[in-house]
Design a protein around this nucleic acid. Structure first.
Lengths: 337, 337
DNA sequence: TCTGGCACTCTGATTGATTGAGTGCTAAAA
DNA sequence: TTTTAGCACTCAATCAATCAGAGTGCCAGA
């Protein structure tokens, strides 16, 4: 990536700022007005032509103003955006909202989605934290009906997983509780790996149960319902999504519950994907700002926003970073040793 | 609602059929071709004019074909649609898919949403069954961290609810288990009403826990994540949603997790809402076909489709009915005494 | 009661002219 | 060498006018 002169950087930054605000190509004259630079429009035009040469701007047709390219946004994000923090005022508002919510992951995630959508004027997606190598805290076998038994797993950190088991022949709740107690004695505190190692010495039914336990611990809840969304309706106002294809592209992405799981930056960093970056052809008009939250190596989830490439990156990035940090703290409070 | 002559009914039915298929106004001549009626186009025109007089058809402008009105669809649904069943072939396919799924509510609901969306060419929404007056089967108190305790409730039928409690001072898992055992002894098998009645004779901490239990049982999970959706991307292909307003209207509705909870037909019936029916102004171009499933008075959820008024009502209604019945059976298998 | 025929209406596509925003380039000024 | 003023040029957007065609409404006759 070529280095730009300070003035070129200024021009690029102002073009992006104006284009993000108005969605209209930016002319050399209008740029002068908003940027208040003390040169003529012709100079600006020369700079713009140069920036176009370098691939950071284009224009839709000969007599139109300039529009940033994906590379232009990329340069902007990498070089012209400091590690700016969210204004304290907003940090407080958000923290306050989180304190008001009940101490429940589902509420927090819903709230996180709402905050992200509002702040970044985009659609947002938050997935529940998933345990990397879950540890069994306790299991329960609960008879629901003659031959149907509910298996409930409580994992370290409070995640609950459940599955219905069909028995070959009926068992009383008494008998089930005994089996439960025995298995708890054997396996509470173990990861699925350890469980596999200690598999011997079990009755057939107990083996069946443990096989299920292991499967449940390793495949994870995966429930697609564990994804929280917001802002889709509002982001459809943006001009890039008014036509059918644009709308379908973003709706299709948001509809996938695990869409952001394809992007997994390490916890603590924020990743910006501009214009689908080749990997998502449909999303060529979209950008994403994604972060992972939680405790690395233990339990992590993904959260972020999806909007037009013409996105308020500064806001989006600082909001995503702030919310991810907040969520990480919540998770580590819950899961801490 | 005025009675129509058999021929008028036939004309109305054919107009709707053609319009549903093509989204184009239907002309008198083209109607002749598809319906194969042995009269002239002029006769059809007269009938159409009559139907327009009665409010069942309109035309967008003088020299355009006819389009059904909401009243027209309503008449069609009430009078011209028998209690037709889904073709056996499809019933089998659907039943087969349900058998393939794991015996888990979340999987079934996701599947139900997918089936509905495919079959009715619409967006679908399925909400988890909610207990009407839940009965506690067992509660667990699990220490997660010094002063944070996870309260897990298992309700009759296998619903699990959880909540984090912050203690005033630390307690050991031992102590928590004792409290748990005591409360289970007292309250297992009770509804929240009974619990309120037997509230006396508890230590302060136990009272706090039971207050939470009651709250959790009465307010319900309410987790917005317990809603499954599908087909939104595809339904945006329909011409009525190509413009911004149309798309935003349907996306806004689908985004609300409890949208269908506003419509609650009794279990076993299917309700059809055409053109928003005045209650949903934004959804004037949409229809919904909704059913409640589950066991009345015990645990019920809502499921249905949302699409353009130009919807294949016959398919939609029979699919919704069939899937609702299927889900009702699954629920009653799980919850049956 | 139905039908053939014809006048009438309205849309949608096409064309052409016009306007104006905005650039690119050149030659002069700093 | 860099900046600026000026001017020619390009292209989208808008408007008006025209035209073909689809489809209706209605009347008069079967």
């Amino acid at each position: 990536m070529v280095e730009l002169t300070p003035r070129q950087e200024r021009v690029l930054g102002q073009v992006i700022k104006a284009y993000v605000a108005t969605a209209q190509p930016v002319s050399s004259k209008s740029l002068l007005e908003i940027a208040g630079m003390r040169v003529s429009s012709a100079t600006i035009r020369n700079e713009m032509a140069e920036l176009e040469e370098l691939g950071y701007l284009t224009h839709p047709h000969t007599s139109a103003g300039r529009v940033p390219t994906d590379a232009g946004y990329r340069y902007f994000v990498e070089h012209l955006l400091g590690e700016s923090e969210l204004p304290l005022q907003e940090q407080n508002t958000i923290r306050h909202q989180f304190h008001q919510a009940r101490t429940e992951m589902s509420q927090w995630m819903q709230l996180a989605a709402a905050v992200l959508a509002r702040s970044a004027r985009s659609a947002s997606l938050v997935t529940a934290p998933r345990l990397d190598s879950p540890i069994l805290r306790r299991l329960e076998l609960i008879s629901t009906q003659s031959r149907l038994v509910l298996l409930v797993l409580v994992l370290e950190g409070g995640t609950v997983r459940q599955r219905i088991v069909t028995l070959k022949e009926p068992m009383t709740q008494e008998a089930l509780s005994q089996v439960g107690a025995k298995l708890n004695g054997h396996y509470a505190g173990d990861t699925s790996l350890v469980m596999r190692a200690k598999f011997g010495g079990l009755a057939e039914f107990e083996q069946d149960v443990m096989a299920l336990v292991i499967e449940l611990m390793e495949t994870g809840g995966q429930s697609s319902a564990e994804t929280y969304r917001d802002g889709l309706k509002e982001v459809l106002r943006e001009p890039e999504f008014t036509d059918q294809d644009g709308a379908r592209a973003i709706v299709g992405a948001i509809e996938q519950p695990d869409f952001f799981d394809q992007i997994t930056p390490p916890v603590g960093t924020v990743q910006v994907v501009i214009g689908g970056e080749g990997r998502w052809r449909e999303l060529s008009a979209c950008s994403m700002v994604v972060a992972r939250y939680g405790v690395e190596g233990y339990a992590t989830g993904t959260l972020g926003v999806l909007g037009p490439t013409r996105m308020p990156y500064s806001r989006a990035i600082s909001t995503v970073r702030y919310v991810a940090d907040l969520m990480s703290n919540l998770v580590s409070d819950l899961y801490a040793e």
